[in-house]
Amino acid sequence: MNNYWDNVWTSVDVKDYKKYINLNDDYKFIDIFKQHKISNICDAACVFGKYSAIFSKNNFKVSGFDISEQSIILTKNMLTTLNLGFMDFCVCSITDIKYRDECFEGVIAHAVLDHLNTTEAIKALNELFRITKKNGLIYLSFDGLSDNDIEACHEVLADGSFKYIDGTRKGMIFKYYINEEIKKLIMGKEILYFNTKQNGEREVILRKI
Rank of each mutant, 00 (worst) to 15 (best):
T168S: 11
V156M: 08
D149Y: 09
L157G: 00
L145D: 05
A111M: 14
D16F: 13
E201G: 01
D96L: 12
D6W: 07
D43I: 12
K175G: 00
F89S: 05
V47D: 04
N199P: 00
D166Y: 06
K197E: 03
L125G: 03
K18V: 07
G136K: 04
N148G: 05
Y17N: 10
M87C: 11
V62M: 12
R100C: 03
G136W: 07
I32Q: 03
N59P: 00
F142R: 07
L79Y: 08
L185G: 02
T80C: 08
N199C: 07
E69Y: 09
N58A: 03
F174V: 08
C46P: 00
G171D: 10
V156Q: 01
L145I: 14
E203H: 09
K208T: 09
T118S: 03
L145T: 01
D31F: 14
N24Q: 14
F86W: 08
Y17V: 10
I21P: 01
F89K: 09
Y177P: 00
K19L: 05
G167E: 08
K133S: 12
S56F: 10
F65K: 02
H115S: 06
I178C: 11
R169F: 06
I72E: 01
K61V: 08
M172D: 01
L140Q: 05
I97P: 00
V8M: 05
Y20W: 13
R100M: 09
I205P: 00
N22D: 15
I94T: 08
G106Y: 09
K133M: 15
I72V: 15
S11F: 05
G136Q: 07
N179A: 10
I209A: 13
M78C: 04
V62A: 13
S11T: 00
I173P: 00
K133C: 11
N40M: 06
Y17L: 14
Y193P: 00
I182N: 07
I41D: 02
Q35D: 10
S161C: 07
Y27L: 12
N117C: 05
E127V: 07
E190D: 12
Y20C: 07
K133E: 14
N117M: 05
I54Q: 05
E190Q: 14
R130C: 13
F55K: 03
V47S: 08
K184C: 10
K189Q: 15
T80S: 14
